[in-house]
Design a binder for these strands. Structure first.
Lengths: 205, 205, 205, 205
DNA sequence: AATGAATGAGCATTCATTCAT
DNA sequence: TATGAATGAATGCTCATTCAT
């Protein structure tokens, strides 16, 4: 946690610390000013380092945005894998996915803004990030729905990929609305509301 | 002598023509390069006019984006109003909304890209555009659902605003996926798929 | 006075009228915004004509400034010549010159600003205008002083050209101060104050 | 590690050097091309640095002009204070002021051009600079004359402020003429000539 | 590794000038 | 003559990136 550890932290740890500091600063700056309006010097300033130092860790702003995405997805998927392992029914697994989705983003508004807004500011980014992780995430949902259909939990007259997009799109909209809302409210509980409708639509009557 | 030519319509047409040409060019350029990477000179070049001429019609890029949004929303809402007037049941109205939503964006891929991607590239834009038209649109859906609940068509244990966000989010995700997809497929038919699940979830058992 | 005379004004008169209108507008605009910050469109707007029309009468801003100077100097010198003809003593002539100088500029603050400020905004202008009229004016003063010395009115141990610069510089400073002053006071009476000192310095004890 | 190099003086010197270089280059460029016709790139080129570097030291052209004025006035007034301290009579003090005025500007033709021409190219500048230093300078002269009147050196029937403007205006005109002159002659000796007339006009008969 | 002064390519914007009407 | 829409050259300014220290 400390920026200049006196303890046995290795040189590698120092490097990691500064890298982390830049990424954390970048999330904050991007959330406040938007990716395209953020300057490298803003990020460096927020991180408390010199402008030039940023280039020792990243090639440029694009790579920083990529790293933010990678780091967050890695953490999210890693955590998700563990949580889902214990759940057997497709319904329980989807519920946990939805909850995690909103819990995670609801816990870090700046990160949510970067994910909902900044990562979507160009088709180039969207395609890259879609290829990088969104696709995998969407496929996880699709697969779970597919499993549910095979297990007889869900109606079979609905294409799993369509249902997956519906669930993802619904959650995504909850997050976007939460970000833009002037009122402050907890995001996670929206998961239950979404699922009530979603399961009503996909579950076997 | 007269400042407006004898044929008032033609003068208006000329102005409108160039304005329109700029807006059309801008949609194309924004879709290809992204809003922030588009230069005024790109738009002017695409429109076949000089750079400076753009400033005779718009204050800058921001105003162009706003105008694109305004013009499209105006057309969309105007068309929608007419279509919905004849429909009585909430189900029919929601169905028509969903169809129109996907038909419209599915008919103009560049415009769809601008709406799905470029208009969301900054919180500033999102807030402005949310205030300008998205909010109204979302409220139209909410109100229709509310009507459906009062009429006994829909379950009453679901908050209309939540259901509205779910429907909107689902449609929105369909559009985004369609844009990013490498395959080319018609967007409009997805409306039926979305509604199958959505109505399954909200309609009275 | 009217901008489009219905009376028998000839075509030439119309031309002159528009030329005059542009010059009058330019003096006003230059005084308000400064020569370099004034746009042709500002002048055209102030004159109530189209931008392009300005070019039917003048090559550009420089020529307008020149014309302002020429017109004013012509009027000033023409008027001055008449007034001075009747005066015999050098003292009387210098007194009248000083009075005219301050009366004229004191009567048209905008013109005074153009003369004191805008005409001096570049060495190029200053050299041109110096050659064009200031030099002639200064020489008129010098010659008068010379005459006074020859007539025994003034001390002979002072170079006429130096005395001329002193008188001109003193009057000039009165005008500049008057322009910059926040208080509003009549300029012409300063002539007497300047001359009291000046004559004290140059007249034969 | 340390942000200020071991030798603090050198860092300061470096900064000062580049700032000074820009100011010196700007005086030269302004004198040659005029303030409004000078481009930032002209100044940067003359100073031997990149265009962007100028903005590390100054906000823009206006601030450069201000700095030129401030620096010169500071030097001038600082020097003047010392010189005048030893002089008792008002006459001696005014003589020294006049000499310093012409010596200083006569020693740096470019600076003189900036002071006589460029600083007066707009009412905005004139007002700012008048407020900033000219007024103070004029008041120094006025006060000295006032002292001379009280001490019985000068006539009391002349307003000190008017006499001050006359002296200042006379000196100013000497400088302007010297700048515009095609002949090359020393400026400083003109002080004596001006004072001969001025004292003749203001001293007790 | 870290710094931050310096760089200069890149772009938005203005506005004098033209010319078809 | 008069217009004013259109032009496009000109330039101030920003900011990502480099590199000597």
């Amino acid at each position: 946690m400390s920026r200049s550890p006196r303890n046995g932290a290795s040189a590698r740890a120092v490097v990691t610390d500064k890298r982390e500091a830049i990424l954390r600063a970048a999330v904050n700056v991007f959330a406040r000013k938007g990716f395209f309006n953020s300057k490298i010097s803003d990020i460096a300033g927020e991180a408390g380092i010199a402008d030039g130092t940023v280039y020792l860790y990243f090639k440029g702003k694009d790579e920083i945005l990529h790293s933010i995405f990678d780091r967050a997805m890695e953490a999210f998927i890693g955590e998700g894998k563990k949580e889902l392992d214990g759940l057997r029914s497709a319904e329980d697994r989807l519920r946990r996915i939805a909850e995690l989705h909103l819990e995670r983003l609801g816990a870090d508004r700046d990160l949510a803004i970067v994910f909902q807004v900044e990562l979507r500011g160009s088709t180039k980014f969207m395609q890259e990030f879609s290829a990088a992780g969104f696709a995998e995430y969407l496929d996880l949902i699709r697969q779970t729905i597919d499993d549910g259909q095979r297990a007889g939990e869900f109606r079979r007259d609905i294409k799993p990929i369509v249902a997956a997009k519906i669930l993802y799109g619904s959650l995504d909209e909850m997050v976007t609305n939460w970000i833009l809302s002037e009122r402050s409210y907890p995001l996670a509980p929206m998961a239950g509301e979404v699922l009530k409708v979603f399961f009503g639509g996909v579950k076997q009557g």
